[in-house]
């Protein structure tokens, strides 16, 4: 084994797939935006991504909010700073944990199923069948999913923000001895529009990433059941990595000024 060759091959593979994904995204948007549109498909995907992810995202958010309150209490009570807990919870949820955790959960739930569905359509020739029936797979399959991801994840994150703050409230009021009204007032005392807005922008970017990776990995999958299985794994892993990378970049964009 030549170590240089291994490094070179890995580099080429990364560049190759990055280029592939970029071109795929351009095609999806370029062709999708020019229509024809498939409102039924867009609606179906919006329901699947938005509505059916609510339980998963809600559960994640409430426990995260509760843990945040508990953890900051144990830390902050050491220097009498418990009163900062409502602010800690709301800022962490809206700016960071809401979008990132919702994004990762949706990547596992929706990204995987998209890759499996489109991958199966690929290996059973259903995608070829679409083309022969005068229907562009990019417009019919990819664009509705990407649009639904882009639109629905911010809504999901908005819900997650509220539920997360509620989790912190429950913990603080029933276990840590906060006054219920006082906690709510403190929550909004230092909250700025930008905090929520940056989280929603992140959510939109993450939703786009999840749908794009699900579609891309499914679309390029080859070789039967094994290929579809590999596509599902790749969709979740690549979406998660891209979400974490994009999270840093969007944060930098919003808060470095």
């Amino acid at each position: 084994m030549n170590p240089l060759a291994t490094v070179g091959r890995a580099t080429l593979t990364v560049c190759d797939s990055a280029g592939g994904i970029f071109l795929f995204a351009l095609q999806a948007l370029g062709r999708g935006l020019r229509g024809p549109f498939y409102p039924r498909q867009i609606l179906r995907q919006m329901i699947d991504i938005g509505y059916y992810s609510l339980p998963v995202v809600g559960l994640t958010a409430i426990f995260t909010g509760m843990v945040l309150a508990l953890q900051s209490y144990t830390g902050f009570s050491r220097f009498e700073a418990q009163s900062a807990i409502p602010t800690i919870v709301v800022l962490s949820m809206t700016r960071e944990l809401g979008p990132v955790l919702a994004g990762l959960m949706v990547a596992g739930r929706v990204g995987a199923s998209m890759a499996a569905e489109i991958g199966t359509m690929r290996v059973t020739e259903q995608i070829d069948a679409l083309s022969t029936l005068s229907t562009d797979p990019f417009r019919y399959l990819v664009f509705p999913r990407v649009v639904a991801g882009l639109l629905m994840l911010p809504l999901l994150v908005l819900v997650a923000d509220v539920i997360g703050v509620m989790g912190g409230w429950l913990m603080s009021v029933f276990k840590l001895g906060f006054g219920p009204i006082e906690y709510v007032n403190r929550t909004f005392e230092f909250l700025e529009t930008q905090d929520v807005l940056s989280g929603l922008v992140k959510a939109g970017v993450f939703g786009f990433i999840v749908a794009l990776m699900g579609c891309f990995q499914g679309y390029v999958s080859r070789g039967g059941a094994q290929g579809v299985g590999a596509a599902t794994t790749k969709a979740v892993v690549s979406a998660s990595i891209l979400i974490l990378t994009a999270n840093y970049m969007v944060t930098e964009l919003f808060f470095s000024r």
């Binding site: 259903q126 070829d128 069948a129 022969t132 029936l133 229907t135």
Partner: peptide, 29 residues
């Protein structure tokens, strides 16, 4: 492609759609 019709080896029916929508797919599209 509007001139073409194709019967695929595994039929390649769209399994998310009922039979009639499969048959009418080209007409609808």
């Amino acid at each position: 492609r509007a001139k073409f019709g194709m019967l695929f080896q595994g039929a390649a029916l769209f399994d998310s759609l009922p039979v009639w929508e499969n048959v009418a797919f080209g007409l609808l599209a």
